[in-house]
Computed example of a mutant assay.
Amino acid sequence: MLTQHIIRSAVETALAEDAPYGDITCETTIPRDETGSAALTAREDGVMSGIDVFAAAFRTQNPLIEVVPSIADGERFRAGRTLATVSGPVRDLLTAERVALNFTQRMSGIATMTAAFADAVDAIYEDGHEGRDASVGPVVRPRRYARTRIADTRKTTPGLRPFEKYAVVCGGGHNHRYGLSDAVMMKDNHLAALAARGIDLAGAIRHVREQVGHTTHIEVEVDSLDQIPAVIDGGADTIMLDNFTLEDTRRGVELIDGRAIVEASGNMSLERVAAVAATGVDIISVGALTHSVRSIDLGLDWLA
Rank of each mutant, 00 (worst) to 15 (best):
V169M: 13
E271Y: 14
T112W: 12
M186H: 01
V11M: 03
D233M: 10
R144I: 08
R272N: 15
D226E: 11
T157Y: 06
G74H: 07
Y145E: 04
P162Y: 04
R8H: 11
E221V: 03
V286K: 06
H176M: 09
A111D: 07
A115N: 13
G131Q: 12
V276S: 14
F77P: 02
T157D: 09
R259T: 06
R76F: 05
L289T: 11
D223F: 03
I110R: 10
D119E: 15
V262M: 08
A38P: 01
R78W: 02
S295V: 09
T28A: 02
I228Y: 03
S295G: 13
A134G: 14
E219Y: 12
P142I: 00
I6A: 02
A120H: 14
E97F: 12
H174S: 05
R197M: 15
L83V: 05
L83N: 04
V281A: 12
P162F: 03
E97A: 13
A277V: 14
S224K: 12
T156A: 09
V276H: 15
D133L: 15
V222E: 00
E164W: 02
A192L: 12
H129W: 15
A277M: 14
A278C: 13
G252F: 06
D33P: 11
N62L: 00
A96I: 01
A275L: 13
A275N: 13
Q211I: 00
I228H: 04
T35V: 03
G280F: 10
G171W: 05
